[in-house]
Write a protein that binds this DNA or RNA. Sequence first.
DNA 1: TCTTGACTACACAGATCTGTGTAGTTACCT
DNA 2: AGGTAACTACACAGATCTGTGTAGTCAAGA
Lengths: 193, 193
Amino acid sequence: MSRWPAKEEIEARILETADRLFYRQGIRAIGVDTVADEIGISKRTLYNHYPSKDALIAAYLSRRLVELEITDRPPLEQILGAFDRLERSVASRTFRGCAFVNAVAELGQEVRDIGRLAVAFKERRRLWFRDLLSRLGIADADGLATQLALLLDGAIATSLVRGDPAFVRAAREAAVTLIDAGSRKKKERRDRL
Amino acid sequence: MSRWPAKEEIEARILETADRLFYRQGIRAIGVDTVADEIGISKRTLYNHYPSKDALIAAYLSRRLVELEITDRPPLEQILGAFDRLERSVASRTFRGCAFVNAVAELGQEVRDIGRLAVAFKERRRLWFRDLLSRLGIADADGLATQLALLLDGAIATSLVRGDPAFVRAAREAAVTLIDAGSRKKKERRDRL
DNA sequence: TCTTGACTACACAGATCTGTGTAGTTACCT
DNA sequence: AGGTAACTACACAGATCTGTGTAGTCAAGA
């Protein structure tokens, strides 16, 4: 066993810290020195693990590009659970909007791959909605998934500005209405057959 | 007549230029020198009109905090027109999301008044929706206005990331569905009376 | 004619920030 | 015992950026 933590362990610690600082205070607002100091390692060591700040930014966003799990719970519960989780997150006051949207807003086209990662993240969640809506037997699951994703992103942006969880509840209600309308269309179509 | 443009004229030119550069490339990405050079004035002159970059940023956002007019056109047409204008804006490729949301994402709580201006802007549009919905005789105009504002903000954030006007069209469709559901509730209630 | 007022050009202080270079330390391995 | 690998401390280059200070220009007005 070595004197220092394993390579993976220290890199995980760097990413954890970068994530917290970048997300809460903004990528441009946090310097590499700040990240290193916060962990208690030298800047040199940080650069030995990540060759540039851009690489660290890309790793930060890649870490947030997690798989979205579909469980055995009722699909509707899972869908609305996404809004409920957001509401709790907003209420917890560590919330600072969507890391991907913020990164695009901050860095625009400056850092390569940011746009790609952001699109991948958004599309992943849209498809997560779509698969759940399919399980509900909804006809236009794809179109409705897009609408739910739009609502959720609207709730995130609004919460960033207003910091009030009530708007997430309003988005959740709108989601129920849209799903209801989508289900009715399915039913009408089934009735016609 | 003076050798130089009137004070208001030159300040308008500064704001115009700052607006274009700040919005398209980001507030942090644009230095004061860049703004001055773009107009063709010296940095010293710019600082003689705006005492600091923060003041310029506040003026930039204040300029975007315009009144929203309600015309004599049919209310539904005006509501959906907001989505249509956004769709054209996204298609025009000068689109870079919402200036207020971006400013909050970039500067967070760093610059005073940004949060206040952003909330004022969002609330102004929500109330614009609400007044139009009231004219439609919708019962819960306030709640539905919140939902439409959420949808529009979602469309803006999504368009920033994806750059595809199709998502604005999807948001518009969702808006129609929500308004439809809201109108039906109104009708049901009237039927009950 | 002479003063005034707004502008320009330019230098500069001072505070960042990213990334590198280097010498020294120290546990582990052979 | 000696070499190695990772780390630290620290300095520094070089590129920002904000904001100020200053001397000079030049038209308008008294």
